[in-house]
Amino acid sequence: MIRLSAITRVFRMGDQEVRALNSISIDIASGEYVSIMGPSGSGKSTLLNVIGLLDQPDSGRYELDGRDVTGLSETERARVRREKIGFVFQSFHLVPRLTAAENIALPLMLEGVAPTERKARVDAALDAFDLGDRARHRPAELSGGQRQRVAIARATILRPTALLADEPTGNLDHRIGAEVMELLEGLHHAGTTLIVVTHDRELGARAHRHIAMRDGEIVADEK
């Protein structure tokens, strides 16, 4: 359960102010599948970052699973991110010197999961995302679709309640993009809240709830 009340995020560049989020209020229930669309600069990424506790609003209140997370310390926010949030990025953000398996294992390491259990869970994830034969490959040796699958496996290895994807198909061709979306939708079917930012109308339309943004405000919210 994500509940934003009057969230405002202002960026200051010199004496210019950009209201990236202008008093946004929104409720997203657990297990929802939401797409966020809107022109460039409308505040989609900022909204996603605030929801993922990567960014902090200048004002407003954010409740996550019934807990007020607005004023948490950096350490506490890191813990919430680790336990409840999974991020999927347009540019994958894999660590180049680590293998696919090691990239997927990163959240487990951060969480302090023992090596034997870690290995079992990574192996299971590799199989689930059809990466079994790519476990020891480094990102540079993987295709775009494979890289994003590794990233998604990593984002979901700790079974987060919400999966936040910022243009997850932006760097993939249409067919591979559709495959990645199917993968994400599969996770949604398994119960994860899925929030996808996209420029692609077709992909956006697949969500069950469509939020449209413009100039830091929500201009449409349709189920």
Partner: peptide
């Protein structure tokens, strides 16, 4: 820097 950002996004505290 992007890698550090990623670790933070994955929930690594500053101390880690």
């Amino acid at each position: 820097t992007p890698e550090i950002g990623l670790l933070k996004a994955l929930g690594a505290p500053a101390a880690d």
